[in-house]
Write a protein that binds this DNA or RNA. Structure first.
Lengths: 224, 224
DNA sequence: CCGCAATACTCACACTGTCCAGATTGCCGA
DNA sequence: TCGGCAATCTGGACAGTGTGAGTATTGCGG
């Protein structure tokens, strides 16, 4: 929120357009999802000519990418807050504590997905230009990728580490564990948003609990 | 493929436009995903004026919905073929057979998702207009919903029934089982397509196997 | 054989992303 | 202090999109 002139700005130059565009993009993505971040609309919100954006982003896709990055950071922050707020009493048993922590991380993920579906979809690259799975190495399009910012999977890794520390998970199985956990939770989120939007919150909570039960059971079962 | 005149048709009336539009929609959705099904382009393929589609579909979204329905049927058929072709030898132990069958169903799901990502995305409603999870009952927009056609989840239900029959799964747990299974497999698919497109086929196969291991372990574990 | 309702077409409008050329300015060196 | 330069923003334009209103063309039932 650097400037907020409703129409024409006082100064010809905006000062910090790039950031303002991203912020406005987050605003429209919050309600409406990724396809709501429209170049002309975003420029209109910021109070700038549509083509001004091209000075900071080569294309609309680049803007969306930046917005998605920020949405991902927002998601990590929201998960942090959720975990901080809703995990006061932990079981004394360290194994049980680790399990409930993993469950709590999953709940945090789903909480954000259901609370901020627009940002969640935006963060997860809802409408990727690159359809298909050509196996291209993505050629590291990283525009000076600041990969040090908090990312949602960090919480998951910490939870799995705790499981390993508690002896519930073999260290060698941590890779399969991260895939299984992420897939279960992400799949649940997508299903709730896209496939089963008519579920009541109670039904959703039940499905979450049951799926998380299956997950931790499968992870901590005596491996073959 | 009712008609294929490159330009203007011989007859003024097309004969069976609605079906032709859906077929053309499937064609463009196959490569390019749901956002590639563009009204004017589809009409162009069929060889008809853009607005002719409005005689059969109230809006582009309705066309997409029809295309998505057909893509879902295609997915079910593809899973059928996959399961028929790639499951010759089953373990003698019925419990083990049921488990491998569930795994095979999951593999069939993922095989279609990775083989036909455009159709998969289209079938799963990649770009829903209704963002958010307002809990609306969807008001049953069913345009004479022919719900008797094969749907992908049918295979999953059959696999779980076999697990129940083999004594590996308590009948009361079947609901949680369907959610957990579906979430795991669907989440894996979305992750491969959207989040981890750079994985090699080998890495993907490994992740699939490991995730399915965790799933069946969690489902067939001694319940708490 | 004729009228009519279904079907497809034409024209038009408000949008969108993006290119190109020009206007405006902060800033840095002389 | 001041002139110019490069960064930044603006305006107009073009191709393409979904969709509405009115018009032409037909197959078919009476």
């Amino acid at each position: 929120m650097v400037e907020k002139r409703p129409r024409t700005r006082a100064t010809y130059h905006h000062g910090d357009l790039r950031a303002a565009l991203i912020t406005a993009g987050i605003g429209v993505a919050r309600e409406g999802g990724p396809q709501a971040v429209v170049l002309r609309e975003v420029a209109r919100i910021v109070g700038v000519a549509p083509n001004s954006a091209y000075g900071h982003f080569a294309t609309l896709t680049a803007l969306k990418k930046a917005v998605a990055d920020r949405a991902l950071g927002d998601m990590a922050a929201a998960m942090d807050a959720y975990l901080e707020a809703a995990a006061p009493d932990e079981p004394a048993d360290p194994a049980e504590a680790a399990k409930t922590y993993l469950r709590e991380v999953g709940r945090a993920y789903l909480h954000f997905a259901l609370t901020e579906p627009g940002l969640f979809r935006t963060a997860m690259g809802g409408d990727p230009t690159g359809i298909g799975v050509p196996g291209v190495p993505e050629e590291a399009t990283g525009t000076d990728h600041d990969d040090d910012r908090p990312k949602p999977e960090f919480h998951l890794l910490r939870a799995l580490d705790r499981l390993v520390g508690a002896g519930c998970l073999h260290p060698a199985d941590t890779n399969r564990a991260v895939m299984a956990s992420w897939a279960a939770v992400h799949g649940l989120a997508i299903m709730f948003l896209d496939l089963l939007p008519y579920l009541t919150p109670e039904e959703r909570d039940a499905a979450v609990s049951e799926t998380l039960d299956v997950l931790v059971a499968g992870l901590t079962c005596p491996r073959p």
